[in-house]
Computed example of a mutant assay.
Amino acid sequence: MFADARASADLGGFEGLTAALVYQLFVPLLLIAIGHGVFIREREENTLAPLLAQGVTGNELYAGKWIALAGVALALLLPLAMVSAAAIVRGETLLASLGVIGLYALYLFVWCGLILLVSAKVRSRALSLGVLALFWLASALIVPRMAVESASSAVPAPGKLETDLRMQAELRVVGDGHYAGAPQFLQLQANLLAQYDVDRVEDLPVNFRGVVAEAAEAGLTEVMNRFAEERMELEARQAQFAEYFGWLSPVVAVSAGSRALSGTDLATHHRFLREAEEVRFDFVQGLNRVHVEQLDYVVDINRSIDEEAQRRTRMSAENWNVLDEFSFQPAAADERLARAGAPLAMLFAWFLLVTAGGIHAARRMQP
């Protein structure tokens, strides 16, 4: 739950820095530093007027500047391409890797268009840098925080204390599977005695304590899974609401798309939880089934008499082998691309918007 305090001190708070965060936050800053004065420099050096006088149109000048800045952006994508190639060698699909590269290329092209738009509209490098820095601040820090807070307000979720109290109340109705004498299991005991036509649990052909553990585990799991599904549904709705803020910030859009394509989004996390819980339940019920069928009831209730009794009631380690068989697999590449469709559409809309604005500004450009 808590980060390593020593790591935080050594890295100055950047212990969670990832390659995705570098491309989402810091590469745009580098592009801003490189390109914020591309048109302004032409004015300051008095080369813009001769270019326009020689018949170079504003659109041609814009296209040349865009190609140059986009070339820098593509060069900055080379490390990502190398990492993607390594991922393909290790088993990742080509489609997913190309999707990640394409997503970040489109994201950086959005920044290229925005930088050129601002540089074409203003006449001061300081003002251009200030406007772009302000947009970066809003897009990278303010809007994502607004998205989180707005999602929490729009789709409220009960707190942990409230949820725990509700869940514990229902779990008490199910009963404690470690106490076979609990009132919740009296009817189960009566049914078993009647089914096998015996008068005592010691005479049952199955271990009653194991039957209780098996029944209680099924009941407890049903309750806890229901609460988990309710929580995951709320989380999914919150994530979807927050994703809409990608229309206000390309950083929010690329972040959502990157998580979807790399298989680290909320949907994948929820699928992992469900599959892991299914394995856990089968594992525990397998142990309970061994308890029911292979462990004598009298031996079981006397397990603490001495070391020999404990040894007789100890299950074989082979029963744990099922845990080694669990292997979580990422979703197919086409499914991940489908989940990244909305963020990609947002980034494409941003690209069209800033490009259209830049072309319009270039057409009206004056020395």
Rank of each mutant, 00 (worst) to 15 (best):
S97W: 03
D176V: 07
D282Q: 14
L30C: 10
L352W: 09
F227R: 02
E275D: 14
R303L: 14
E233W: 11
R274T: 15
L11A: 13
Q366H: 10
A120M: 05
I88E: 12
A133L: 15
S124K: 06
D199E: 09
P367H: 07
D176N: 13
L30I: 09
G58S: 06
V292T: 06
L129S: 10
A362M: 06
F109A: 11
A120T: 02
A356T: 09
A215E: 12
E243C: 04
A267D: 05
W111R: 05
E214M: 15
N319H: 15
Q187G: 07
R200A: 11
A87F: 07
M365S: 12
W111G: 06
E293D: 14
L25I: 12
L132H: 01
R289D: 14
V254K: 00
A213W: 10
V298P: 10
A87L: 13
Q187P: 10
L114M: 08
A215C: 09
G64N: 06
A239C: 07
E293P: 04
A194Y: 07
G91Q: 02
L353Y: 02
L352M: 01
A253V: 05
R172T: 07
E277P: 03
D282T: 10
S97Y: 06
R209H: 13
N321W: 15
D324N: 14
R41D: 13
L248G: 06
L106C: 10
I88C: 10
V354A: 01
L323W: 04
V174P: 00
I101D: 01
L61E: 01
I142E: 02
A151P: 01
A228H: 02
H36G: 04
H360S: 14
T264F: 11
E202M: 13
R43K: 09
A216E: 04
E15M: 04
R43S: 05
V212L: 05
N302E: 09
E233F: 11
G58E: 03
R289T: 13
L165G: 07
L287G: 02
F281R: 13
D334A: 08
A96P: 04
R231V: 07
V100H: 00
A85M: 14
P343S: 02
